[in-house]
Write a protein that binds this DNA or RNA. Structure first.
Lengths: 341, 341
DNA sequence: TGTTGTACGTGCAGCGTTGTACACATCAGA
DNA sequence: TCTGATGTGTACAACGCTGCACGTACAACA
């Protein structure tokens, strides 16, 4: 009877045997612990490469040490902007020894997802566009190093934040629209409790409207993330008393719906209606949309968040809050005064 | 000196103490193992609920048992179609005790991502739109239960597959275009080695063209996933010798680029050029696009894949191959003969 | 030469589970 | 009364790693 060739995992012990050292020594090298000579390190790393050893995530988790895996939580998968953030995180992670798992809050709640990630002994968490309150996040941050992307709260001390300057986004949009000759400028915003990102955009919009002497035209319409309701709200922008000359939308997809409604109503863009989106997703550049939008560099947001998270894991206590500056990309949807070149 | 209130995790031992049984008994209940009386089960489950115990993922992984976590691998995050698949997986998972982690092949290679997921002792893997060969996937399937979505190979025995009937997609597209009076119908396909999904669509397109007596117009142009090259290829469809009357695109985004190029070139859609996309993503329904597309029900694909994976984890050996039927959703981009409904 | 450091390695006790081996009742049949 | 058979719960050795408590060797100092 042949021995069952049990396909054994390569462990730290195998490496130790191959390198002719104790298994604890290998562990030390892996953890970059104190008391390792260059020659030891060399021998061990050589054996690791030779045997193709990879540490067991589970064993690390159970023995209380670092797992070198971080979690990333996204609110949904449909906004291509999040892909940019992810790309930024990936690329920043390449320079480190950390890996990443993603979770997407789709049907499940953010809380449940985060809970299950906690159970996996991850080293840290990046939460994108969280709908939780700062308090809840602070509680979470007590359990695990945390960085929030898209959660404006400069006074939070328990975790780091990385944000676009959303106030500036609102301001730039209005400024651009005013330059193009629009006056009755409305805003299609999001109906959400803790969307502090949205709050900032609204505030920027309102401030810029006031600064331009257009206080009487200020109109913020908050709509839930629901196709039907977005269309209805967009329709209202085109007719009746509150008819607008231009609309600033909190995200590109809403702006595209406005373009759609305008097309159906045979309202000409940009002459009758100017439209500005947010995030400068890849659909903006299509000719049938030609959507002016604000670019908040998701890639950079992701990179910075990763940097901050790793710093936190390695021991930083003091909170940091990073801000990137948005850039307005002008396209046909606001080209009322045709841009000379 | 106050005792440091070490926030200890609730373990199986705590539950055992509370229920006044041995910790092995608790483990048995958890695993639904043989030799558990109703009264024991009751006591234990009561204590579990009372203490809010959740099993440690890491400990399960290390001791070689099930972790009740499955991995899902996506090729990218930009295609909203994948969100539908994910939704299907989530909803199917709700009825089970399994959880899910996602990985997205962005910059990292599929191989590296899968490797790291293997290191996490997951119970199973769903791979969406893999670019690996059937051989490589079979090797992988020997290590972990596997279901591939979007990988047509009915003769594979090592793992299950779930697919749209992509041949039918190609056929339906051509059939519809022919009905609308288009004859010179080209196809914008993907330049990839192992895109068997694409192969099927091409085959369906070619077969339908032949069946319609349009063999001489068959033209499959394979383009990599690169914005610039897609635009160039789209441009060629509009002019010169190979000028088309209609284009069938392998995915919606390519079709939207075709619409964009057509808009720039002032070619009228659908009169001068008919366009068909694939996946029926949410952008198709926007009026500025009004893109005819094939719906392959990502939600259903995800649900079926989950069902098959769980079955496999629980012991099934024989491979199963599930096929869903696509549905053509006609819109303005092919409405040459206006549809008298 | 004896003493004190200091740098480097090793030994080992967990971590929270799984799953097998085993002990102990209880009960039916001989 | 003895002998299984069966049903139920316990004991315990893994699993692969971390990180602390120790040795040991060798150099620097008194």
């Amino acid at each position: 009877m042949a021995k069952p060739p049990k396909p054994k995992r390569i462990t730290i012990h195998d490496v130790a045997k191959d390198a002719e050292v104790s298994f604890s020594a290998v562990s030390k090298v892996l953890r970059n612990a104190y008391g390792v000579s260059d020659s030891l390190r060399e021998k061990v790393t050589a054996s690791i490469k030779k045997l193709g050893y990879t540490p067991s995530f589970s064993a690390r988790g159970i023995s209380g040490g670092r797992t070198f895996v971080i979690g990333v939580v996204f609110p949904d998968m449909r906004n291509p902007f999040f892909a940019d953030i992810l790309a930024g995180i990936s690329s920043a992670l390449e320079r480190t020894t950390y890996q990443m798992v993603q979770g997407i809050v789709q049907h499940s709640t953010e809380g449940a997802l985060v809970e299950s990630m906690l159970g996996m002994h991850l080293d840290g968490l990046i939460i994108v566009g969280s709908v939780s309150t700062a308090d809840k996040l602070s509680v979470l941050a007590a359990k695990i190093p945390l960085v929030a992307i898209g959660h404006h709260l400069a006074d939070v001390t328990a975790f780091d934040t990385v944000n676009n300057d959303d106030f500036e986004s609102g301001r730039l949009s209005v400024q651009h629209l005013v330059e193009q000759g629009y006056r009755k400028i409305g805003m299609l915003s999001l109906d959400t409790r803790n969307g502090s990102v949205i709050d900032q955009r609204e505030a920027g919009y309102i401030a810029a409207m006031k600064a331009a002497g257009l206080t009487r035209y200020v109109d913020v319409v908050r709509v839930p993330q629901n196709l039907r309701q977005i269309q209805v709200a967009a329709g209202h922008m085109l007719e009746g008393n509150g008819k607008k000359e231009a609309v600033f939308c909190w995200t590109d997809y809403v702006a595209l719906e406005v373009l759609s409604v305008a097309a159906r109503a045979r309202a000409s863009v940009p002459d009758e209606l100017g439209v500005v989106g947010h995030d400068n997703t890849l659909y903006c550049d299509l000719d049938q949309n030609a959507l002016t939008s604000l670019d908040q560099s998701g890639e950079q947001l992701g990179q910075q968040a990763t940097r901050l998270l790793v710093e936190r894991i390695e021991g930083r206590q003091r909170a940091e809050h990073f801000l990137v500056h948005p850039r307005l990309v002008a396209r046909g949807s606001t080209a009322r005064i045709s841009l000379i070149r």
